[in-house]
């Protein structure tokens, strides 16, 4: 087995008196598609945001390619997320004033890419995800599924090595959710990206290579043992 791309050791994270993570340790292999499941309040999103370097754990560490994220300053973590990671959230959270193509081009412009080249690249991703007709449409005029596809294009446009998706189909109807998930998995497979997807949906979990079940802030080792 190859070296894990992400490794978490003994992660602990609390919000006030609520302990969201209680000593979680996981390993993610390159190219793996991993679903993180569990009941509400089990710490799924907290684990995802901590692995992505968005939240800092109180104790324990996250290693990306063998290097500890704790050793990185805020600027370095920001650049790491921009260049190596893609983040997809439940409601897309597109910038409401920007059109679809402008939203997708944002990460490229942040990397100081040429304006025209960024637009071309963004248009290419919109086309791949079947929403090129919405290039000049504002998020407020899109359906939930369309918004999520545009958000997926924004997450993938930099060619991330790891895609973190937090309930990517949670706000969508069954048909739209299936469509978004199919596109997400197909594009990730094609790009060789590692995918970590937090979900409540058993159908999403069933399409992953592996499932990590959390319960009360800890990995449920008993799941699937029977």
């Amino acid at each position: 087995m190859s070296e894990p791309i992400l490794r978490a050791r003994g992660l602990r994270k609390a919000f006030g008196r609520t302990e969201a993570l209680r000593g979680v340790s996981v390993e993610i292999q390159p190219g793996e598609i991993v679903a993180v499941t569990g009941p509400s309040g089990s710490g799924k999103s907290t684990l995802l945001l901590t692995l992505a370097g968005i939240l800092r754990p109180e104790s324990g560490e996250v290693l990306y390619d063998g290097a500890s994220l704790a050793d990185l300053g805020e600027d370095a973590r920001t650049k790491l997320r921009r260049r190596q990671f893609g983040v997809l959230l439940q409601f897309g959270h597109l910038v409401p004033e920007l059109t679809a193509v402008q939203n997708v081009a944002l990460p490229l412009l942040l990397e100081k890419h040429d304006r025209a080249a960024s637009r071309r690249s963004a248009l290419g991703w919109l086309e791949r995800l079947g929403v090129d007709g919405l290039a000049d449409v504002l998020p407020g005029e899109m359906s939930g599924g369309e918004m999520q596809r545009v958000a997926l294009a924004r997450a993938l446009v930099t060619g991330p090595r790891v895609l973190f998706a937090d309930e990517p189909t949670g706000a969508l109807d069954t048909v739209s959710g299936d469509e978004v998930l199919t596109v997400l998995l197909a594009e990730a497979k094609q790009a060789g990206s590692t995918v970590l997807v937090v979900t409540h949906d058993n159908r999403v979990a069933a399409r992953a290579d592996r499932e990590i079940v959390l319960r009360d802030g800890a990995v449920d080792d008993t799941w699937g043992a029977a």
């Binding site: 945001l49 992505a52 600027d75 920001t78």
Partner: peptide, 18 residues
């Protein structure tokens, strides 16, 4: 008013200075 989209921008690697 734009808290969710700005927080999402930060999550995807937009520096606060931007």
């Amino acid at each position: 008013d734009r808290r969710p989209s700005i927080a999402a921008l930060a999550a995807m690697g937009t520096p606060r200075s931007v």
